[in-house]
Write a protein that binds this DNA or RNA. Structure first.
Length: 626
DNA sequence: GTAGGGTTAG
């Protein structure tokens, strides 16, 4: 079929798939309505002169465009919508307004910026409703300048007397931590309703003025549930969970938000047991947020098993998981190495058409990296419409972990090209990547560029990475010089890296000096004692080995046994060091022997130095392999 | 227009 030249619109109501076909060029602004009948396409040219009735179909051009744009947003084709708006002649201002609102509501904030800027470039001004939608986005993106611009436009257009816009502005300033502007707005308001008071209370609370927030709260005549809840949150954010509980107990209008805020408050102040008690008291009034609060708390406390069992309970009670739930669960998978479950979550996300935003995208990337599937991680990464510094950092660290140091650097440079500013975590991933791939000169280069090129102050962690990098490569002198000239005190990680370097390069002289410091800094870490003991063992200083062990017993320090786990067909298999209880222990051992033989055949020398002394040479070798 | 849940390193 020959297609006419121009823009084609297939209305979603007329077709199963909303599609825009742009054929043969961009400059045309003729519009065609395409109807689908008997799997054939019929084209009708529409009147492009104005908003009058369109040709043929009885549809006005404006309503056609409005429909089309909203179908773009429903199917998340924001780029198309933007391209379309920029290319049609004389777009009706309402189209822009709808587009800005739709992009804000879809949660893709970067698109919003594009729409908003193009709209202003088109000399189209937003209306009152658009302003009220824009302000929270400016606050969320910390777009202070843009928010202030919005403020100016509100004044310029004579909207500054609308109460809801004043409250919106107040809230914006509060969220970008400009309390004095928020206060000024509040003081200037000719009348203040409950909402304005509530906004001011949380503004004060967020900025640490809890006493004033409480005064305002106590002085309020009419309180609604948000007033009580704001007050609960103010106290929780301050860490004063007991005062929060008093407000909670006094509140005559407790709702699910009050409970959620209270539970979160307990979680954030290390009182998981009380949080869970409250959670269990709630019964059927629990909502998605309640479940998410509890699950994410378990994640933060590294109770991954409980997080998963809580999720199963959530499913049993038929509460639908949402994006936030998935972010927490993916974090659990990443820590547990549960690739099967991670894959299931990814499939669920696709099936339910959940929004893969920067949070969820990053959680997927991190899960795939940690579960051994760098290809899938890269797929997710490249498929993300917007990436933030978390996403970039995760993929850089992931590549580095896999030994793809060069690739990690490439991605880092691409990040720079795209104008994304790396942060301190990005550099940890990058430097670790250099370290694992032996890219010493590259590591030195990026370490020295951190501050002067990227404006990121090297922290003790970065020195730790550099010590690791230089240590692995055997630059012991340079390493010691680096530690000597560090602007901050070395931490346990720095000394630990140095110790590893000493062991690798068989330098017992430095090790002893270092270890004393390490034991002072981190006397509860059993690993350090074992480490020192191993150094002595490799030097045949058995008395010192004994001393080390006795010190551990004296101080009541235990070494957590090494543990690894693998998930096969949804079953977790855990292996502790020295544990022979697995039902397939013999078979596994036979297999390990085979691997060991192959490794030896390839010239691998097992590291015997790190094994305790009370076994003979042959046994040493085999206990390293296992 | 105000109140509740999310991600990155060793």
């Amino acid at each position: 079929m020959d297609l006419p030249v121009g823009w084609f619109v297939v209305l979603p109501a007329l077709s199963t798939i909303p599609v825009l076909v742009r054929a043969y060029g961009v400059s045309q602004s003729d519009l065609y309505l395409v109807t689908v009948s008997n799997s054939d396409l019929e084209f009708k040219r529409l009147d492009t002169a104005g908003a009058g009735a369109g040709a043929g179909a009885g549809v006005s051009r404006l309503s056609l465009l409005t429909n089309f744009l909203s179908s773009c947003f429903r199917s998340r084709n924001h780029g198309y919508a933007l391209l379309f708006l920029q290319n049609i002649q004389n777009p009706d201002p309402s189209l822009w307004n709808n587009a800005v609102r739709a992009s804000v509501e879809s949660g893709l904030s970067l698109d919003f910026m594009g729409f908003y800027k193009s709209m202003l470039g088109d000399n189209v001004l937003p209306d009152k409703a658009t302003f009220s939608k824009i302000l929270p986005v400016c606050a969320a993106l910390c777009e202070i300048k843009l928010g202030e611009l919005v403020h100016c436009q509100i004044v310029k257009m004579g909207f500054e007397n609308y109460l809801f816009l004043q409250t919106g502005l107040l809230d914006f300033y509060a969220k970008v931590e400009d309390l004095s502007s928020a206060r000024k707005l509040f003081d200037k308001m000719p009348e203040r309703d409950v909402v304005a008071h509530n906004a001011m209370i949380s503004a004060l609370g967020k900025n640490g003025y809890i006493v004033e927030a409480r005064k305002l709260f106590d002085g309020m005549g009419d309180k609604n549930s948000s007033s009580w809840n704001s007050m609960i949150t103010c106290y929780c954010k301050l860490g004063d969970v007991n005062s929060a509980r008093m407000i909670f107990d006094c509140s005559p209008m407790k709702n699910v938000v009050s409970w959620n805020a209270m539970i979160d408050g307990y979680c954030k102040s290390d009182q998981l047991t009380i949080a869970r008690e409250l959670f269990d008291c709630m019964g059927s009034i629990k909502n998605t947020v309640t479940w998410n609060t509890m699950i994410s708390a378990y994640i933060q406390y590294k109770e991954f098993g409980r997080a998963l069992s809580t999720f199963r309970q959530m499913q049993a009670e038929h509460v639908k998981p949402v994006e936030v739930t998935m972010v927490s669960l993916l974090s659990a998978c990443a820590h547990l190495g549960a690739l099967d479950m991670g894959n299931w979550i990814h499939a669920y996300v696709k099936r339910q058409n959940l929004k893969i935003d920067v949070y969820l995208g990053n959680a997927l990337i991190d899960m795939y990296c940690k579960c051994g599937s760098i290809e899938s991680a890269l797929d997710v990464f490249h498929g993300l419409p917007t990436k933030n510094v978390f996403c970039w950092s995760s993929i850089i660290a992931g590549l580095g972990m896999y030994g793809y140091g060069k690739e990690a650097i490439d991605v880092f440079l691409k990040m720079k090209d795209q104008g994304m500013k790396p942060d301190h975590v990005t550099f940890i991933g990058l430097l670790c990547g250099c370290s694992h791939s032996g890219l010493v000169s590259e590591g030195r280069k990026y370490f020295s560029e951190m501050l002067e090129v990227y404006g990121v102050h090297p922290g003790v962690e970065h020195y730790g990475c550099m010590v690791d990098l230089l240590g692995r490569a055997g630059f012991l002198e340079e390493l010691l010089e680096l530690i000597r000239t560090m602007p901050m005190a070395p931490n346990a990680a720095v000394w630990g890296s140095l110790l590893r370097a000493c062991r690798t390069h068989k330098d017992t002289r430095v090790s002893e000096q270092v270890t004393q410091r390490l034991l002072e800094l981190d006397p509860r870490d059993g690993g350090n004692y074992v480490f020192l003991s191993n150094i002595y063992a490799s030097a045949n200083r058995w008395n010192d080995v004994e001393l080390c062990r006795n010190l551990m017993i004296e101080r009541g320090v235990h070494k957590t046994p090494g543990c690894s786990s693998i998930e096969v067909d949804n079953v977790f298999h855990e292996f502790m060091a020295g544990d022979t209880s697995h039902p397939q222990f013999t078979q596994i051992n036979t297999f390990l022997d085979e691997i060991a033989k192959k490794l030896k055949g390839l010239g691998h020398e097992p590291d015997k130095a790190s094994v305790f002394h009370d076994i003979d040479e042959e046994e040493k070798e085999s206990s390293v392999v296992r």
